[in-house]
């Protein structure tokens, strides 16, 4: 890892998968400030980060963590590469599959399309946080009971999407569950198991009994 960091410091190839600032309409005015520059966009001062690494602080599963990343690095990559938090997966990298789902500021997001710097100041929750001591979270337990996972690659993202869904709608109808799960792809075809798991977790949530 340290090797990797040193080398990417040295090279500025300009090859970027994700150019989030377009140069048009922006005038570079103020010289370099520590960490970021300030530019003038349509009369307003805007902080400009990058392309060098910037130190950012993320609140992940309740703990503050500081990482050095280039501003173009996604939240997903920051967690996976810099912090070795690998539950969330990179599958499409294009906001279509949901395998990278995390809960950021109370909302389920595709972390492959959120920049790490944008996630500062908001609580970030990943699948790693769900365990309650040695025990599985009721939703995880419901996945186990209903066999809501096969190969498991979509599972961490799916679990987080279901968690966000239930947080918002603790007593969903089966139809709402089916609709609510549209954002996560599973090629093993566990949708039936996941649906059942969400309904079970919802029942438990309401103080109902465990169907497992």
């Amino acid at each position: 890892m340290s090797d990797e960091k040193n080398k990417s410091d040295q090279q500025k190839s300009g090859v970027s998968r994700r150019s989030f600032l377009k140069a048009s309409g922006i005038s570079l005015g103020v010289p370099l400030v520590v960490g970021h520059r300030v530019i003038n966009v349509n009369g307003q001062e805007v902080k400009l980060y990058g392309p060098t690494k910037t130190s950012i602080t993320l609140t992940i599963n309740g703990a503050k963590q500081t990482v050095e990343v280039e501003p173009r690095v996604t939240l997903l990559e920051a967690l996976r590469h810099e912090l070795d938090i690998t539950g969330a997966k990179r599958v499409c990298d294009r906001a279509t599959c949901g395998a990278c789902t995390m809960i950021v500021g109370g909302k389920a997001v595709y972390s492959c399309t959120v920049l790490a710097i944008e996630a500062q100041g908001k609580p970030i929750t990943t699948v790693e946080s769900l365990m309650q001591g040695e025990k599985l979270h009721p939703l995880q337990q419901a996945f186990v009971d209903n066999d809501g996972q096969q190969c498991g690659y979509c599972t961490p993202g799916f679990v987080m999407a279901c968690k966000a869904f239930l947080d918002k709608n603790p007593s969903p109808t089966p139809e709402e569950v089916q609709k609510g799960l549209g954002g996560n792809l599973c090629r093993c075809g566990t949708y039936m198991g996941v649906r059942a798991a969400v309904l079970q977790a919802a029942t438990m949530h309401k103080g109902g009994k465990n169907h497992g």
């Binding site: 996976r80 539950g87 997966k89 699948v127 790693e128 769900l130 599985l136 996972q149 190969c151 498991g152």
Partner: peptide, 13 residues
């Protein structure tokens, strides 16, 4: 099941 649900399972990437 357990490892896959907790994110503990390590895949190659």
């Amino acid at each position: 099941g357990y490892e896959k649900l907790t994110g503990a399972a390590r895949y190659v990437d």
